[in-house]
């Protein structure tokens, strides 16, 4: 269910009694546990969840304890039931959240993750050192060629990671899968939840699973239409406009000198809101607000990348 969606008057919904950490709340039938937690301002970490996508509950960081369930329950996708008793701050919950964040941080470069992710990593006292120093990065394309069901056993003295070179194969955006936590959001945005292009999918299996085009072909050879909606949903900076990537490489990306400007896209009559990130009076990145009723955060190639005409080099 979409939060912040336009107000449409739907059918009458029954109110259910749900107990959250000892307090009973009346919530509409069909809400997820996470909806209730967010309404109550109970801080709940999420990574693979986004209001404009179907929950895949793959990251397992939003877990809560529900009475009667033998294992923890993903709050992002479990719908509330009448009389449900939910606990969000037990040892089991805290342990699972901490471990999930720790496992991700020990295998993935989280340095560009959203601020909230860093706050949660501090809150849950994530310590990646106990897994050993990070293992050596894989060569270009090496992780994409691994055969399912086979891996080389290491000596255990280093922690295996997903580190690998950034894929730069076009002028619009780059894919740095060393930062990829496999949250499935980009696949959803490219496919059923937004663009219906299906240029990328999850390939491989287990720890060697990757986000890939067919045969790992470069994006210009794939079905990609460069809408960049995958960039818009990526929580860790694995997908990034080339403009931002180049500036970061050159060391000129400076958030203290940046402004956010909201405007309306001028290309067609749909009226998508644009959120321009500018630095030194130049556009360096374009997004759309996730709560905008027209775009739900998604754009097309023109809206996201078609701005060079306002700032010729």
């Amino acid at each position: 269910m979409r939060r912040n969606a336009p107000v449409m008057l739907g059918g009458v919904r029954r109110l259910l009694d749900v107990d959250i950490d000892g307090t009973t709340h009346r919530v509409p039938e069909g809400s997820t546990i996470l909806d209730v937690l967010r309404d109550q301002d109970i801080d709940t970490p999420t990574l693979c969840y986004l209001g404009n996508l179907t929950p895949v509950n793959a990251c397992r960081v939003c877990m809560v304890e529900v009475d009667g369930s033998r294992v923890l329950v993903p709050s992002c996708s479990r719908r509330v039931e009448d009389g449900m008793v939910v606990k969000t701050d037990t040892d089991r919950v805290r342990h699972s959240r901490k471990m999930v964040l720790e496992l991700l941080a020990s295998s993935t470069d989280m340095s560009l993750a959203e601020d909230a992710v860093h706050r949660w990593m501090d809150d849950y006292q994530v310590d990646v050192k106990r897994y050993g120093p990070p293992g050596p990065p894989a060569g270009a394309g090496e992780r994409d060629r691994r055969q399912a069901g086979h891996h080389h056993v290491t000596d255990g003295m280093t922690a295996e990671t997903v580190a690998q070179p950034t894929k730069v194969d076009n002028e619009l955006y780059v894919r740095d899968y060393a930062r990829c936590i496999l949250c499935y959001k980009c696949v959803e945005a490219c496919g059923e939840d937004a663009q219906n292009t299906f240029a990328i999918a999850v390939a491989g299996r287990g720890f060697d699973a990757t986000i890939a085009t067919e045969f790992d072909v470069a994006l210009p050879d794939s079905a990609c239409v460069y809408c960049g909606n995958c960039i818009g949903v990526c929580p860790t900076g694995a997908l990034m406009p080339k403009s931002e990537y180049d500036m970061r490489q050159a060391g000129t990306w400076d958030e203290s000198r940046q402004d956010q400007v909201t405007t309306v896209c001028t290309f067609c009559g749909v009226g998508c809101n644009l959120e321009l990130t500018t630095q030194d009076n130049r556009i360096v990145r374009v997004d759309s607000p996730i709560d905008h009723s027209v775009t739900h955060g998604h754009l097309c190639i023109k809206g996201r990348f078609g701005y060079s005409h306002v700032q010729p080099d």
């Binding site: 895949v56 793959a58 990251c59 471990m99 069901g149 936590i181 299996r205 287990g206 699973a209």
Partner: peptide
């Protein structure tokens, strides 16, 4: 580790660790 499908973090990374 070989047979994990890779969908969820506890199993995908947990089996490696």
């Amino acid at each position: 580790r070989d047979e994990s499908c890779g969908q969820c973090v506890p199993c995908r990374v947990g089996t490696v660790r």
